[in-house]
Amino acid sequence: MSERKPDSARIRKLLDAYADGELSPAAELEVERALVAHPELSAELERIRELKALLASAAPEPSAEKLEKLSASVAAALESPPAASRRSGRVPGDTPAFRKAFLAIAAVLLLLLLPLGYYSRHRKDAPSAKVEEVEVGEGSGVKVISPEGASYSVIRITTHERDAVSVREIETAEGYSCEVVEDPDSGDAVIRLIPPAEEDDRKE
């Protein structure tokens, strides 16, 4: 009996993904065989499906009136020029002069952060920028922060493998990009800015 426990625990962990239709064909087959052999797993699967159904039907429904107002507010904001948001200080200008100043200030900030262990890897080639990872439990969100404290908008994150290490590249709405390299041993994420020159090299 003790020999079957690890398999049973493994299958239990796969049941949620099976209910979600997210397993590979081989893993799916493994679960289906276990379901036939162990009826208690079928009951477990049924409970997962019941919970999923309940969650789907229990979704909060924001009021239709507020949703209409949301649409109207967005449409109205889009009709005004984007410069309005820059005036409010939320999105800094993107002129070459500003970028130079930004990178210079950010370089100082980065040097201040290094001794704190903020960047534990890629120190020797970490370029200038202040990047902050906002942690909320494990669901961390990556933020790129300007020297003034305004956050840039992350518009795309792509993940790929480089030398067996998971690398996430981040593109911001304001034109800066950076990457997150995940340490395969510790799972820690290290963030660094990709300077335009390096980006060009990688494209070639």
């Binding site: 997210e22 996430r168 994420a189």
Partner: peptide, 15 residues
């Protein structure tokens, strides 16, 4: 992709 994490992590958190 949304949460900048791995697929395995998503699976584990759901479980």
């Amino acid at each position: 992709e949304m949460l900048s994490t791995s697929r395995g992590n998503v699976m584990s958190r759901l479980y």
